[in-house]
Simulated scan of single mutants.
Amino acid sequence: MNPPGYPAEAFPLQGVRHEVFPGQPAGSTAIQYTTVNVTTEPPKDHIIWSLCCFVYSNPFCLGLAALIYSIKARDRKVAGDLEGARHYGSTARCLNIVSTVLVVITILIFVITIIIVVENAKRMYYNRYNRYNPYYHY
């Protein structure tokens, strides 16, 4: 996409002139132009993901670091430095991934620990009070 006021770049193709047989009128040589508009997708800054990691899951301050890099990526994008924005956005994405994985692993360990503790408590309770019950089979 070209900004308004700037003309599209035109690249002339090679004009090929064919030999004309004698007695035939000479035709004009036409040169074709092809306009190529390369649209580049603006780099992503992952600001929403960084905000969620900062607010809901902030292990080792990775959510804060991801938020800072996301803001830097957005600033670089506004300034027109797309390569810098890609670099900061990529760093923010990596920090968000690490933060999310650490929180998911922590939650899984917590849930598994709670399940194990509850099952052991049940087993101890039933073993203590039903030890002499002939109808109880655990």
Rank of each mutant, 00 (worst) to 15 (best):
63 G>D: 03
91 T>H: 09
67 L>M: 11
90 S>Q: 08
90 S>C: 05
77 K>T: 10
96 N>A: 15
75 D>G: 09
82 L>C: 05
60 F>D: 11
74 R>C: 06
71 I>V: 13
95 L>R: 02
80 G>E: 02
97 I>P: 03
86 R>A: 08
60 F>M: 12
78 V>W: 02
87 H>A: 09
61 C>D: 14
90 S>A: 05
88 Y>V: 01
78 V>I: 15
66 A>R: 03
87 H>I: 11
74 R>P: 01
90 S>F: 02
83 E>H: 10
71 I>T: 12
65 A>R: 15
64 L>N: 10
96 N>G: 12
58 N>F: 07
59 P>E: 06
93 R>N: 03
87 H>S: 10
84 G>C: 05
94 C>M: 14
82 L>R: 07
82 L>S: 02
88 Y>E: 08
82 L>W: 06
85 A>R: 00
75 D>P: 03
68 I>K: 14
97 I>Y: 07
65 A>Q: 15
61 C>P: 07
58 N>L: 13
89 G>H: 00
81 D>M: 05
95 L>P: 05
93 R>E: 07
67 L>T: 00
71 I>M: 14
69 Y>I: 04
68 I>T: 06
90 S>Y: 04
79 A>E: 03
93 R>D: 06
64 L>Y: 08
60 F>W: 09
71 I>N: 12
82 L>Q: 05
75 D>Q: 13
67 L>V: 01
72 K>M: 11
69 Y>N: 14
71 I>P: 00
62 L>H: 02
73 A>V: 00
88 Y>G: 02
92 A>C: 06
85 A>D: 00
97 I>S: 10
97 I>H: 11
64 L>K: 11
69 Y>E: 15
86 R>V: 07
74 R>S: 15
83 E>I: 15
86 R>I: 04
72 K>A: 13
78 V>L: 12
72 K>T: 07
96 N>Q: 15
83 E>T: 08
70 S>A: 09
66 A>D: 04
88 Y>W: 05
64 L>E: 11
76 R>K: 14
63 G>M: 06
81 D>Y: 02
71 I>F: 11
